[in-house]
Design a protein around this nucleic acid. Structure first.
Lengths: 210, 210, 210, 210
DNA sequence: AATGAATGAGCCTTCATTCAT
DNA sequence: CATGAATGAAGGCTCATTCAT
């Protein structure tokens, strides 16, 4: 596979992500992806078995990269009590990663809402890597020594008041700024304050319990 | 229009909402809606000009009812300082309304993420009724005597840490419970705590500022 | 059948004729006919068995009236050598009839061009009444004492250089005037001259042969 | 585009022309065109945007070819006084072209009668090429040094007693022969005589005026 | 005589996918 | 690798016609 072809393949993926995000998986057309990626339609089928396979590939890459980020964090001693700096770094890294993959995030949200998906991909954001058979993940599991009920509560709180607000901020940022006529910079500021006054507060309170 | 026909029309709408929610607007098939609503496919087009018109009708009804709830609240003196009881009532009412319309909510979220929608329907949940030319809305406007910046901040905070978490809880509840193997009752409890410790906290702090 | 219903029936026919003429039989929609005739669609089927039956009824009436005009002419001694005045009168009458039924003429032309019509209704304009089993028509036959070849030639000449130009003038008049920006009055004048210098000339020459 | 595909495209066009002529544009079915052209139905849409686009393409080609014939004639010195031979040649050529495109002619007539066509395609037969921005057409314009009224009269006479009789002869020939039980050869003869005694006579008289 | 509701058949068009080169 | 051509299977929508009252 020469360099040119590898580039075609990537262009297909990128374009597909963009169009899936814009129109939804069902609303997207292979024709349009081909046209915008400037490749022949049949070439898409040369690389990918089907429309669904493109989506799978996008998801696979996304979760592979997400997990890699997380594993990296863990390996650097992520969950240790005194790793504040490391945590902040990870959050910045991870936020940045998601922001630069907002197309994927949009697709993830939409597909997660559909009725027939056995598994809800979005939930992996809260127990990321949980499905991966990976010995390194054991390190994470080790750190969870709390009751099931407590864990469930944490998951709910993190997902619905931490992860989802952030996800929403990413996927709606553009539309919000246009609708309310503010800059993305301003939005970032407002959203930061919003999180500070709600979700972050929760973390602070929790820590002070100890 | 006799009672029977009115019922057909409603059955079409309900079925459409369910299937749009399950498969997404683009993934939904008119044939399936007809089959499940137990009406002839052509009858759907007798009542609604197109697939899109069904969606519009669903949206229109949803926002009409939402607005009605809000107006009702306002008329009962909603925003007065001492109307705590009234506020709680409204929140219960509104929550209940949204929960019993979770199909619509799902559709709303998905359609709001699409690229070409001029207006993002989901945003109406934060300034609901804002578009209505209604003298009764003046009562609401009266109560807004704060700077634009403050208002923007409130909107962002309310939407991303209040409205969206709740919306997500509604549209993901079923999947979440299935995935994490908990009952809806338990979920309700967890989510309630989550909001209490984050968004509600913010409201309390804000009030104590005065 | 009361007066009101009779009027509905007629309004259906008139509207159908207009719309068939505008859009062609296949392009016409029963819905549109009903709407424009201001009757319920089902009422059309109360009066007429099918869409085709409306067309048939229009044709039947048209040919009945055309034939009546001709018979009237014959009875007044139409084909006699010295009945110049009578002939002129008939021509005026007949022209006027066709002109006030230009919708029917249009339909006739279009339907005559279709592939599957066994009989070409337009041809009846040249041997009008020929299909009618009517003893009064014998009078006409009596007057034809010329060879088959001569008769064929006359038919061709009359149809293609007399009837069809006139028919075309009727069905295209409006469009022609609009396209070439002249009044209907002017058009009438031009067409009259055109016929005078071509087809009429042929009649004059023919007569002078004797 | 390989030879095979070019042939498919042409077969679609030819078949469409035939079926449009037989059943009318509205009566024609894409399924039937596909079946008779022996191509997959979707292939039709691969080449032509819509049913209407096929019609447009047919018209475009027809007028392009017609105009080419005329331009050719003009370039050979068509309108010169002494170009009798050239004129006869052109007439033969043009007649032959129309006769071998009688399907198109039928469609032209039928579509010209419809109500909503802004422009009447049939009228282009009388001022063919008039719409083309072509310097070669100036040669034609040069020859028109007569009053507007005279021009209008000529147009009417030519169209209604020259063009339309000929067009009708082409589109009705088959039906006429079948109906009156004569051969096409005989018909040609009769029609030739008919034109000779009417329209041609007018041309002769006109010339002798000078 | 009149009508709102309902329907089966079919039409134009689209789309994911494959073929042949 | 790459591509123009081709295709089967729908999908949205329409339409003449009928039903029930």
């Amino acid at each position: 596979m020469d360099k040119n072809s590898e580039e075609s393949k990537q262009r297909i993926l990128n374009t597909a992500a963009r169009i899936f995000a814009e129109k939804g998986y069902d609303g997207a057309r292979i024709d349009e992806i081909a046209r915008e990626a400037e490749v022949n339609k049949a070439l898409i089928y040369y690389y990918y078995k089907s429309k669904g396979a493109i989506l799978s590939e996008l998801f696979r890459t996304f979760f592979k990269e997400s997990t890699a980020l997380l594993l990296n964090f863990v390996e650097r001693g992520g969950f240790a009590e005194d790793a504040e700096e490391n945590k902040r770094l990870f959050e910045a890294e991870y936020s940045h990663y998601l922001e630069s993959n907002k197309d994927l995030l949009k697709i993830l949200v939409v597909e997660s809402l559909k009725g027939d998906v056995g598994e809800v991909p979005l939930f992996r954001l809260v127990d990321i890597g949980g499905n991966e058979q990976n010995e390194r993940m054991d390190a994470i599991e080790e750190n969870i020594r709390i009751s099931d009920k407590e864990q469930q509560q944490i998951y709910v709180t993190e997902f619905f008041t931490g992860v989802m607000p952030f996800v929403c901020s990413v996927v709606f940022k553009e539309k919000w700024c246009k609708h309310f006529k503010i800059t993305e910079q301003e939005f970032k500021q407002y959203f930061s304050v919003a999180m500070e006054e709600t979700h972050e507060q929760y973390h602070k309170n929790k820590k002070s319990e100890f």
